[in-house]
Simulated scan of single mutants.
Amino acid sequence: MHPSAMENGRLFFSTYFEASTPALMLDIGSQDVNGSLRQLAPPGARYVGLDFAAGRGVDVVLDDPYRLPFDDGVADVVVSSSCFEHVDMFWLTFNEVLRVLKPDGLFYLNAPSNGEFHRYPVDCWRFYPDAGEALVRWGTRSGYRPALLESFTTYQHLDIWNDFVAIFVKDADCAMHHADCMLDRIERYMNGRRYGVEGILNPQAATEDGARLHALTGHAKPQQ
Results as ranks from 00 to 15, higher is better:
residue 76 D to N: 15
residue 59 D to K: 10
residue 11 L to G: 10
residue 29 G to S: 04
residue 71 D to A: 14
residue 57 G to T: 06
residue 9 G to L: 00
residue 10 R to V: 07
residue 20 S to Y: 10
residue 85 E to P: 05
residue 69 P to T: 08
residue 31 Q to N: 08
residue 26 L to M: 06
residue 75 A to W: 02
residue 84 F to S: 05
residue 85 E to K: 02
residue 56 R to D: 13
residue 53 A to P: 01
residue 5 A to T: 10
residue 80 S to C: 11
residue 77 V to L: 13
residue 64 D to Y: 09
residue 72 D to M: 01
residue 21 T to W: 10
residue 15 T to Y: 06
residue 62 L to R: 05
residue 42 P to R: 10
residue 58 V to I: 06
residue 42 P to T: 11
residue 75 A to D: 08
residue 2 H to T: 14
residue 79 V to S: 12
residue 63 D to L: 11
residue 16 Y to K: 03
residue 13 F to N: 05
residue 47 Y to A: 01
residue 87 V to M: 04
residue 37 L to A: 10
residue 4 S to W: 09
residue 64 D to K: 05
residue 24 L to K: 11
residue 66 Y to N: 07
residue 7 E to Y: 12
residue 83 C to V: 15
residue 46 R to Q: 12
residue 68 L to G: 01
residue 82 S to L: 11
residue 12 F to W: 02
residue 19 A to V: 13
residue 34 N to Q: 12
residue 28 I to A: 08
residue 63 D to S: 15
residue 17 F to P: 04
residue 49 G to P: 00
residue 30 S to N: 09
residue 6 M to R: 15
residue 24 L to M: 13
residue 22 P to S: 04
residue 72 D to F: 00
residue 52 F to V: 15
residue 13 F to I: 10
residue 18 E to P: 00
residue 51 D to N: 09
residue 13 F to E: 00
residue 50 L to Y: 05
residue 5 A to C: 05
residue 56 R to V: 11
residue 50 L to H: 00
residue 58 V to M: 01
residue 6 M to Q: 15
residue 30 S to G: 02
residue 21 T to H: 12
residue 25 M to C: 14
residue 41 A to G: 12
residue 56 R to M: 07
residue 83 C to Y: 05
residue 61 V to G: 01
residue 59 D to M: 02
residue 58 V to Y: 03
residue 87 V to Y: 05
residue 82 S to P: 00
residue 57 G to I: 05
residue 77 V to G: 02
residue 81 S to A: 15
residue 26 L to V: 07
residue 18 E to C: 08
residue 25 M to N: 05
residue 22 P to C: 01
residue 2 H to Y: 11
residue 32 D to R: 13
residue 23 A to S: 15
residue 74 V to R: 06
residue 29 G to M: 08
residue 44 G to R: 07
residue 71 D to M: 09
residue 51 D to G: 01
residue 51 D to C: 02
residue 46 R to T: 14
residue 42 P to K: 09
residue 59 D to F: 06
residue 72 D to Q: 06
residue 46 R to V: 11
residue 65 P to Q: 09
residue 67 R to A: 15
residue 48 V to R: 07
residue 21 T to M: 07
residue 84 F to K: 04
residue 15 T to D: 04
residue 33 V to H: 12
residue 51 D to F: 01
residue 63 D to G: 14
residue 17 F to R: 14
residue 80 S to Y: 00
residue 65 P to S: 03
residue 31 Q to W: 02
residue 15 T to K: 02
residue 18 E to W: 02
residue 19 A to N: 12
residue 16 Y to L: 13
residue 36 S to L: 06
residue 44 G to F: 06
residue 3 P to M: 06
residue 23 A to P: 08
residue 47 Y to L: 03
residue 78 V to D: 04
residue 81 S to V: 11
residue 20 S to L: 10
residue 69 P to D: 06
residue 11 L to K: 10
residue 60 V to L: 04
residue 77 V to E: 06
residue 45 A to T: 14
residue 72 D to W: 02
residue 65 P to N: 02
residue 60 V to W: 02
residue 52 F to P: 00
residue 82 S to F: 07
residue 61 V to H: 00
